[in-house]
Amino acid sequence: MVAPAAPGLSGLERERRRAAWLFLLPMVVAVVLVAGWPLGRTIMFSMTDARLDDTAAPAFVGLANYNLLIRDPDWWNAVRNTVVFALVSVTIETLLGLIIALALNERMRGRGLLRAAMLIPWAIPTVVSAQMWGWMLHDQVGVVNEALLALGLIARPLAFTADPDLALWAVVAVDVWKTTPFMALLILAALQLLPDEIYEAAEIDGLGPVGRFFRLTLPLIRPALMVAVIFRALDALRVFDLMYVLTGNSAATASMSVYARQHLVDFQDVGFGSAAATGLFLVIAVATVLLLTLGRVRLGATENGR
């Protein structure tokens, strides 16, 4: 980035580096205070019997909390819910996002308007979208039940958010609605960077639309697509608001975040709750490494590429 300093610049260059650290300091201090230190404390708490309602100095209990955690079927249920939620919702969002992006990539009237409409679900707070869908999915007077009944698809109204067999899928449906547009817009942006010439060449070679998509479009947008998928997947693994508002603390949908907060705040068990939170942190750390390796994404690419 900075070429070897010209002889006259070296003094200035040294001053610049000193200044650089001064400029960085406030941000670094803020990040350490708000992220590094609390994470460290959470990990420490996870090895004590600290409680929210007890101010006495907590005692060190080693890995006892973790031992309890891995024996708790509710924890494994939360892990399963979270992983199923992340896998299913991100898969649907990616496929739907691709379809919508390809449709919006066609030149046509009203494209700008449609693209603007796509931003509505993204901009709506998660809590609000959970409430909106909670109302639409209401078991007695919800518009979704009414529509399905009118179409003859169901015989009697379904309790989407209360029925343990349906609740997790209701949560997935709301997440798909809320985040597919985001996916579609990122994919659309990648599509619009592709030059027209390659498609002209493909036309001469006699590739059909399906061949064009799999042989040309998909490989070319893959890097952008992978990054979008990874960001979405990591976001989905820490999901909290959606479950908390749509289905409360119900075990049928509780995610790892919901489980950890419930123990931490509702049951005041800081030690055990911190162990669960640390568990989630480890799961996400492992998922990050796995996704980055499998996705063959080089995060340093932009850093070194310039």
């Binding site: 990040v31 959470t42 708490f45 975040s257 907060r261 939170a277 989630l280 996400i284």
Partner: peptide
């Protein structure tokens, strides 16, 4: 890496702070 942090993982430490 900080942007990947689950918020719950810093909850008890932040609460104390």
């Amino acid at each position: 890496a900080v942007s990947m942090f689950p918020q719950v993982a810093v909850l008890s430490g932040l609460f104390e702070l």
